[in-house]
Nucleic acid binder design. Structure first.
Ligand SMILES: [Zn+2]
Ligand SMILES: [Zn+2]
Ligand SMILES: [Zn+2]
Ligand SMILES: [Zn+2]
Lengths: 158, 158
DNA sequence: AGCCGTATCGTTACTTTATAACATACGACC
DNA sequence: GGTCGTATGTTATAAAGTAACGATACGGCT
């Protein structure tokens, strides 16, 4: 996959990653759904990355510990994590990123840097409202939104 | 592919399709690029459909006339048509639709009905501006936007 | 403890989507 | 006619995603 090429940004710290996992565990418990080891592993891999990861990237990493793991296992875990709002899928990259605000469902907008691979998750109410208005004007009832801007982040322009 | 299932909407009329092709030819001529027969064929197939088409759907249709045509030919034509803004790619469907306003480059928003497969191409200035503002606030320079809402169109809700 | 229904996972095989690499054709220009 | 650039043909393969089915683990019950 290797989304970013030019600059290297720091990987998320182990502390951050652990905190995100803790939160995920808490949320799953509250919701009465099971963050099983496989799901936890997949989430851990995603959260430990500074870049969006493709399903097969995740697979490859998991194989370090579990050599015989196969695609369906990963995709099932991804489906679960998506449903629970713990991760997002970037359609334009065929890749997945951890959600920064998994406590409640939301629509996000993503700024994706083509140079360094950084992904910025926004929740602009203006964007959301303008999209809702546009849909409403057509009598359209949205269920899911995909909003992704590809370009260059501030750092990579400098 | 077969995006829509419940309702059947009328296919674009032959007249509409011909008009779109004429316009594409004119635009390409103006721009000094070549709308070759293959490219024209791909565009014709897309414009003649009432639904977004996957690359392999297009391939299959072209094979009626050209049995030995292969994926790269279709993808190359699609790349050209995307570059020229004659079609759009719907990332969330891995499918392509004709552009309704190919005369000048633009960012669109798509309302995609999961029931009937209808795709509505919008150009809401409010959406565009709010996205631009959000990006600007982060110092992000967008090159390409993907904005797709999946849900149910007005007709399919009734 | 033992049983049962369901959720999760393992495993194999496969489909769908997309591209790399290299060969060939063809027109424009000198 | 030779060279160059663009477009296409052709073969093979990569990358992304899923169907199907059996095995196992888990939670709730007696
Ligand atoms: Zn989020
Ligand atoms: Zn960057
Ligand atoms: Zn358009
Ligand atoms: Zn509909």
């Amino acid at each position: 996959m290797n989304v970013g090429k030019h600059y290297t940004r720091p990987m998320p710290s182990a502390t951050e990653t652990r905190k995100a996992l803790k939160l995920a565990e808490k949320l799953c418990q509250e919701r009465g759904v099971r963050l099983t080891p496989q799901r936890r592993n997949v989430l851990a891999v995603i959260n430990a990355s500074d870049q969006p990861l493709g399903a097969y990237d995740i697979l490859e990493q998991l194989r370090a510990q579990q050599p015989r793991i196969a695609p369906p296992t990963v995709y099932r875990a991804l489906d679960f994590l998506l449903t629970e709002g713990l991760i997002h899928k970037l359609e334009s990259l065929h890749a997945f990123v951890g959600c920064h605000h998994p406590d409640h469902p939301h629509h996000s907008q993503f700024l994706i840097c083509e140079d360094c691979g950084e992904v910025d998750e926004l929740h602009s109410p203006l964007v959301r409202d303008s999209l809702d208005d546009a849909a409403k004007a057509r009598g359209f009832a949205p269920k899911h939104s995909t909003v992704e801007l590809l370009g260059r982040c501030a750092r990579c322009q400098a």
